[in-house]
Design a protein around this nucleic acid. Sequence first.
DNA 1: TACGCTTGCCAACAAGCGTTGACCAACATG
DNA 2: CATGTTGGTCAACGCTTGTTGGCAAGCGTA
Lengths: 202, 202
Amino acid sequence: MPEHAPSAADTAPDADPARPRRSAATRAAILAAARDRFAADGYERATIRAIAKDARIDPSMVMRYYGNKEGLFAAASEIDLRAPDLSRVPREELGARLVRHFLERWECDETLTAMMRVGVTNEAGAERMRGVFAEQMGPVLAAVSPVPEEAPTRAALIASQILGMALCRYVLHLPPAVGLSHDEVVAWLAPTVQRYLTAEQP
Amino acid sequence: MPEHAPSAADTAPDADPARPRRSAATRAAILAAARDRFAADGYERATIRAIAKDARIDPSMVMRYYGNKEGLFAAASEIDLRAPDLSRVPREELGARLVRHFLERWECDETLTAMMRVGVTNEAGAERMRGVFAEQMGPVLAAVSPVPEEAPTRAALIASQILGMALCRYVLHLPPAVGLSHDEVVAWLAPTVQRYLTAEQP
DNA sequence: TACGCTTGCCAACAAGCGTTGACCAACATG
DNA sequence: CATGTTGGTCAACGCTTGTTGGCAAGCGTA
């Protein structure tokens, strides 16, 4: 056996929860720094060296814990939209609820901005966004969609409006979009989302 | 005077229109290749070497004609949205007209996709998008906006929906968004844009 | 104490990048 | 013809990138 082969536990996040590894803090620091950098710079310009410097460790540690840059990105961009359960929400409030949810979600977690930045330039990032969309948005919206087979289309329309606002507001920093308050954004977008969700197919 | 300093005419596109430069074809080839690469790969991954290879010339030619990579991008991403004159369009058709215009615009000119890819990762690209937005969308929409000072906000809302659809359809390739026909997209989005443009402020 | 795994740093690698300057062929003009 | 300008190639520069392997210190167990 090689002297310093990365044992399985080295790549797995936590094999034995009873004995937390000493490196857990380092792992977390790397991940946090990676999210920051990916969100701020996108995939290519977020260098492993810069991430390592932010995390105050050596670049080679990143490689040991996450294999390579793609592995780091995969780990750093695990996304949970925390899509709310809509089945108990009054039908006429669905749009407003969704818009407000994502507005708050976006501003408390820069992972979403990172996902978008990377999804636009990197095919792996785009694939991840498609996955998140299908697995996390799909079911929630299908549950409240009038006709099940229309659900994907309606979900895509909603995604187009919500991602579009996120793009203008958090990535492009279009002044008029940045200047809107939460309530204003909700007031404008909620009817749109509501219609995409509940209106009969045109 | 240095022997081979780039004379002013070398950097200017065309100083003397009476005598077209022999290099015009090369310049155009570089620009076309640059647009392709920027659209496909984004700013960082679109390398000068790759662009030069596509244009079948030496990388140093790119430098001579466009100064540096940023200059090349600036030249390659000159954008004309060809925003239509809306003042003669019946008020109730404004939304549909706008949506269809940009749908067609996007599919016949990959510069728009390039602009979006670069605008997301590169600050210069974002600045350019803000400029295009302000200079080309602003006036057209202000001309049909009920209250002039509301025009920027309304324009940003419209941009959020149109850019969002472009993002889902042409960049992320979200299957349900790709699957929609032009008419379906117009049918769904036109009422949204129409409302952002003409509805009273909520 | 001695041994083995873990954590971490260091120095280096090969590859690719944007960019530069020397050099040559074709053309235009005196 | 000679001369200066333009269009183009070539080889290299300095630098940064992702990635690798070796080595030292810390810790756990026997």
